[in-house]
């Protein structure tokens, strides 16, 4: 963007600079920021930005990164039991990609002045959240396919507009993430199709998984528009481009014909095409369940967080070793040989 670089903006307490002068300077920066957002320019790390914009982005990007990391668990649960070597390779690659997405996103968050350690600490202590969807268990192999199709499908619907998010580093991370996610989604769909067209037992396994993952996937878009605390401001700042309900409707409209092509049904008796609206109508979401899961009472909340904390604690001595080794050898080459 063409905006000013954050230098002296907001430096109160500088001798000889009056409060009114600071306020005027602040207003000038805000005007430049607002104009840049209005013109669809990207805000970059060194640009001035309102503190609330910064905080809102840190919250959203961190939650997104945490979701990638916690989201490894329900799928990793099936790596050792994947039923063919091809499926096993696909699943391993996917879980590896998720760790990579976590890394991009923590880097994007770090451009806003926080650190990965600080964010992980907030995840481990429950001060920052991750997507509610990962608090549901993967009970059969078909759940891996259903997650690919529905959960990744919902994530893509949410994330594609984020490729045009006003904050540059986040938008660029999303471009990379979305490419890989759409690949995973196609593979999930294809895994589910193989089950649906397989034996009777496989078909039943696929249907059962879709029945369990459909509603939680719709909840991934967040609360309805009239209850969404951050939506209006995020849209004004062009962090978000569409409302929760708008994206949820878009997802349903895409998913229904896909379910038909799969030969599977969706567990909603109210689901039907509305000619007048040009959209599918669908039944009411159980928002009490959604709030309950967010509060920590979902089927796997404790398990997911405990496992993450455990991995971090168990790895402490490894990280300490790496730090100690780096410190000992900071003046030498990588193999302990003196640098020329």
């Amino acid at each position: 963007m063409t905006a000013v670089t954050a230098g002296t903006a907001g430096t109160t307490g500088v001798p000889g600079v009056s409060d009114t002068a600071v306020a005027a300077e602040q207003a000038a920066y805000e005007a430049v920021f607002d104009a840049a957002v209005a013109a669809d320019e990207r805000i970059e790390p060194r640009d001035w930005m309102p503190e609330a914009y910064r905080a809102s982005l840190v919250r959203q990007i961190a939650q997104h990164a945490h979701s990638e990391i916690i989201g490894m668990q329900p799928e990793a649960n099936w790596i050792t039991r994947a039923p063919s070597l091809r499926r096993k390779a696909i699943l391993m690659a996917k879980v590896q990609d998720e760790a990579g997405h976590g890394l991009y996103l923590y880097s994007a968050a770090e451009t806003l002045g926080t650190s990965r350690d600080e964010l992980l600490d907030k995840l481990h202590s429950g001060r920052q959240k991750y997507s509610s969807i990962f608090n549901y268990p993967t009970l059969t192999w078909a759940d891996v396919g259903a997650i690919g199709w529905l959960v990744d499908g919902a994530a893509i619907t949410n994330q594609v507009p984020l490729c045009r998010c006003s904050y540059g580093p986040y938008a660029r991370a999303m471009v990379r993430v979305c490419k890989e996610e759409s690949f995973h989604q196609r593979q999930g769909y294809e895994a589910l199709l193989a089950l649906s067209r397989g034996t009777e037992a496989q078909h039943a396994m696929a249907q059962d998984a879709v029945d369990r993952w459909w509603w939680p996937s719709l909840m991934m878009f967040g609360p309805p528009d009239d209850e969404s605390a951050h939506s209006a401001q995020s849209m004004a700042w062009k962090i978000k481009r569409h409302s929760n309900d708008e994206l949820r409707q878009r997802f349903v409209d895409i998913a229904v014909p896909q379910a038909e092509a799969l030969g599977l049904t969706l567990p909603d008796p109210d689901l039907r095409w509305n000619e007048e609206r040009g959209h599918y109508d669908f039944g009411p979401i159980d928002w009490a369940e959604f709030r309950d899961v967010l509060k920590g009472n979902g089927p796997c909340n404790d398990q997911r967080l405990s496992k993450r904390r455990q991995a971090h604690e168990d790895g402490a001595w490894v990280r300490a070793a790496a730090a100690a080794h780096a410190e000992k050898h900071k003046h030498t080459g990588k193999d302990g040989e003196a640098q020329a």
């Binding site: 490894m72 990793a76 790596i79 879980v95 976590g102 991995a311 168990d314 790895g315 402490a316």
Partner: peptide, 15 residues
């Protein structure tokens, strides 16, 4: 090695 997924000491080692 697949058993490590989700339990590595740092994210870079997950990868």
């Amino acid at each position: 090695l697949g058993e490590w997924a989700g339990s590595a000491p740092v994210l870079e080692e997950e990868v």
